[in-house]
Write a protein that binds this DNA or RNA. Structure first.
Length: 572
RNA sequence: CGGGAUGUGGCCCAGCCUGGCUAGGGCGCCUGCUUUGGGAGCAGGAGAUCGGGAGUUCGAAUCUCCCCAUCCCGACCA
């Protein structure tokens, strides 16, 4: 390919709404353009890199035996109604009607569809199977952001495993885990696995692959000592034991005029330290007012509440709803003696006594509250959000919080979809539902994550396997004396299987060099009269700036060996 | 959805507060000449409903109201 024929609209300045490094660089280097929020056009360089990411993913999942499909992205509502997710998916799913008025959805994922196909599996002898596709997904994200990192229309590789039993599922899961680690290594993305909430998908084991980045949107709790790592939606920690004073016989109500916050009650004469208080949150779970109680110095993690209750829609109660339910305003709320509303309490409160909490009467609190005795707790659950500095649940080391991009997610579905859609196989012991697993990886997001992890002040530094071209040949003049040898080199490299680009633009050297660095080709060859006089070209490596003169006759051998070396040294 | 910010040629930005000739600069683009190993110089040129609508005014990029879009933080989210 000749650069003079390639559409590569590079920009000296990034559009001012591109903030994340990958976003700004992919635009500046001419890889992508935005159509509207969350929808991007892939330009020729962007599409090449995108396809290279997809190819790596394809190779690694095929290496574990996966077979490629292509399923429709428009789905009839019925299939989603059958699994129950037509309702539970909420607004994330784009919905439309066809001309007959039939409800239709744009696929956000394909468990239902693959499970339907899997109904044709009839014997355990056909298992195991791993099926996958690389297909457009549509998600009506509330807040698309950071370029390709969070979009509403994107390609995802989603694979599904089908096994006769749990042991088979475990094996398929572990195979995907290993395949994903190889994928991230090849993409130059330093990713690690964390325990995750399985969210709306259902299922048990759930591992998200994360890579640290300020542009991310997940917080991960990590232990530097033992390797414990979990999404903050799932993470736990060990709390220091607290010795409560001997409990009184009954709660004691006392006046607390003007005290509306945990902090104010700490400072109040006769108040209590935050870890001796109960924080009562009034939440609405699928329309039902519910009291959620955590320790005064703890934060509720909403996802944990959702996971614990199975609720679909969760929101804080309005002030009016709260007053109607408890007869008091925020600042004086409590769960003591509340029996007409569900009460869910955090595990950290089990067995606590002599606590202080609102009395459901403005301006009054209770002290000497015994949680087990005075609260009608209907459900105990891990609800509190772990904070940095708390102790690792495994080894006690102080935990860190790391902002991350989720680059992959694998989890065990079990038999839910197989049962719903009747995907069963015959075994010697009778008919059993197929045990499924689900494994996703976003192509565009990983492209962006690669850039997040591989760039410098001059532009992108592509790993060899993802670079839109592996080598750019910069022709310093366009006369035959220079362009001739440059073209010859280009032909030789192509013949040797190297993905090369010939920069034959009528532009100044500085422009060509700067563009080559911005776009991020791993290797650049400078072909100009100065070197040709001595029978050499200059070779520059993007990653470390290493320059060397290479005799014309050795260029192909040198380039191919350097490319091989660069492939082998990918981090991961 | 809550909070904050921004919309001026393809990109970056000035002008707005304090209303006043043909809306200005840089990059990019076109033409010519010179130049040619790290984003060239000179000369000429094209390109704008100032996000949209309504209003105030003799006069609106500038003031007022409504709407839209985009970005950031949060909520939400396989």
């Amino acid at each position: 390919m000749r650069w003079s024929n390639l559409f590569v609209p590079t920009l000296r300045d990034a559009p001012n709404d591109a903030v994340a490094p990958s976003h700004a660089l992919l635009i500046r280097a001419g890889f992508i353009r935005q159509l509207h929020a969350g929808h991007y056009s892939m330009l020729p360089l962007g599409w090449r890199a995108h396809q290279k990411v997809a190819q790596i993913v394809r190779e690694e999942v095929e290496a574990i035996g996966a077979q490629e499909f292509l399923l429709p992205t428009m789905h009839p509502a019925e299939i989603w109604q059958q699994s129950g997710r037509w309702d539970t998916m909420g607004e994330i799913m784009f919905r439309l009607e066809d001309r007959r008025g039939n409800a239709t959805a744009l696929g956000i994922t394909h468990e239902e569809i693959f499970a339907t196909v899997a109904t044709e599996l009839s014997s355990y002898k056909q298992l195991p199977q791993i099926w996958y596709q690389i297909q457009t997904k549509f998600r009506d994200e509330a807040r698309p952001k950071s370029g390709l990192l969070r979009v509403r229309e994107f390609h995802m590789k989603d694979s599904y495993s089908f096994d006769v039993d749990q042991a088979g599922l475990d094996a398929a899961f572990d195979a995907h885990d290993a395949a994903y680690r190889r994928i991230f290594a090849r993409l130059g993305i330093p990713a690690f696995g964390v325990q995750a909430s399985s969210g709306a998908m259902g299922g048990n084991d759930s591992v998200e692959f994360m890579t640290p980045s300020d542009a991310g949107e997940d917080d991960v709790i990590r232990c530097a000592s033992c390797g414990y790592a979990a999404n903050i939606e799932r993470a736990t920690s060990t709390l220091p034991a607290i010795d409560d004073p001997a409990p009184a016989d009954a709660p004691e109500k006392f006046a607390t005029p003007g005290v509306l916050t945990i902090a104010a009650l700490e400072a109040f004469e006769g108040g209590a330290a935050a870890d001796r208080q109960l924080k009562t949150l009034v939440m609405v779970l699928d329309g039902a007012i519910t009291l959620v109680v955590v320790r005064g110095d703890h934060q509720l993690n909403t996802q944990k509440l959702i996971d614990a209750t199975g609720a679909i829609e969760v929101r804080p109660a309005e002030r009016e709803e709260t007053f109607a339910a408890l007869g008091a305003n925020p600042g004086s709320l409590g769960a003591v003696d509340v029996t007409d509303l569900p009460v869910i309490a955090d595990l950290a409160l089990e067995g606590r006594t002599s606590m202080t909490t609102g009395a459901n009467e403005d301006g009054f609190h209770y002290r000497s509250v015994d949680v087990d005795r005075d609260l009608s707790v209907g459900q105990w659950a891990d609800l509190r959000e772990v904070s940095a500095g708390e102790a690792c649940p495994n080894c006690g080391t102080e935990l860190d919080v790391v902002r991350c991009i989720e680059v992959g997610h694998i989890f065990k579905l079990g038999t839910k979809y197989a049962e719903t859609f009747g995907a069963t196989v015959s075994t010697p012991d009778g008919e059993v539902p197929i045990v499924m697993g689900s494994y996703g990886i976003g192509i565009g997001r990983n492209l962006a994550a690669t850039v997040e992890a591989n760039h410098d002040e001059n532009g992108i530094v592509w790993p060899v396997e993802v670079a839109p071209f592996e080598v750019v040949i910069t022709a310093m003049r366009l006369d035959e004396a220079t362009l001739g040898p440059a073209e010859h080199l280009y032909d030789e490299l192509k013949a040797a299987g190297v993905d090369a680009l010939l920069d034959d633009r009528d532009a100044r050297a500085g422009v060509k060099f700067a563009d080559a660095e911005l776009v991020g080709f791993p290797i650049r060859l400078t072909v100009g009269p100065r070197g040709l006089e001595n029978g050499i070209v200059e070779m520059v490596e993007r990653a470390d700036g290493d320059k060397r003169d290479v005799p014309l006759g050795e260029v192909v051998a040198t380039v191919t060996s350097r490319l091989a070396a660069l492939r082998a040294t990918m981090p991961g």
